[in-house]
Computed example of a mutant assay.
Amino acid sequence: MSHYFIAIHVPEELQALFSDWQHGLKEQFPYKQWPHNQDLHITLKFLGDVADNKVEQLKQELQKVQDLQAFDLDVGGIGTFGNPNKPRVLWAGVERTDRLVKLQQIVEDCALKIGYQKEEREYRPHITLAKMWAGKSSLSEETLPSLQKQFKDKQTMHVADIVLFRIHPTKSPKYEVVERYMLK
């Protein structure tokens, strides 16, 4: 079985911007993984292992999102998840709009219908820029606030589709488009 997830793919012009951010941040943040710019996305639902017959069922269920209207989001800004001294994830922010939350809930319901557990945590949309802290030392208290001032610019991102991705852990880029679902 392969691992899959459902996401909004970051468009090329924003991939370039966030890739530039990553290059500037690598000097200050010792992370093990810096995703390839073509792998940048906003996760809607991580599935993990999916049997082939379930993938086909999921493809059918996800067609429901095609009834939704395309929309815009503001993306940008920097933040972290995890221990503030050694954060496990460094991310670019994503505006949490009603339309995005509705889209995420529909995707969650589609996954639930084919047997996946509903995510209990609150949905916190973001674009992962780096993960897996590898530094021996901790961040100073001033580092993140300083970077938040530097990387505060927001960009508008048009969301016209969502993607079912297959993960290839040993490749770069590591995410393969399996199916794309266009919004209205």
Rank of each mutant, 00 (worst) to 15 (best):
F5A: 00
A7I: 02
A7M: 06
I8L: 04
P11K: 11
E12M: 11
E12W: 09
A16D: 14
L17W: 05
S19V: 03
D20H: 15
W21P: 02
Q22E: 05
H23K: 15
E27F: 01
P30M: 08
K32S: 13
Q33C: 05
W34D: 08
W34Q: 10
W34K: 10
P35N: 02
N37V: 09
Q38G: 04
Q38T: 06
I42M: 02
I42N: 00
T43D: 01
L44Q: 10
K45L: 06
G48N: 07
V50L: 07
D52A: 13
D52Q: 15
N53M: 11
K54V: 08
E56R: 08
E56L: 13
L58Q: 04
L62Y: 03
V65K: 05
D67T: 14
D67S: 12
L73N: 03
G76Y: 06
G77L: 11
G77F: 08
F81N: 08
F81D: 09
N85M: 12
N85V: 05
N85S: 14
P87V: 10
V89T: 09
L90N: 00
W91Q: 02
A92C: 12
G93S: 06
L100A: 04
V101F: 08
K102T: 13
L103P: 11
L103T: 11
Q105A: 08
I106P: 07
V107K: 08
C110K: 06
A111R: 07
A111T: 05
L112Y: 15
K113N: 15
K113C: 04
I114N: 00
Q117L: 12
K118N: 08
E120C: 05
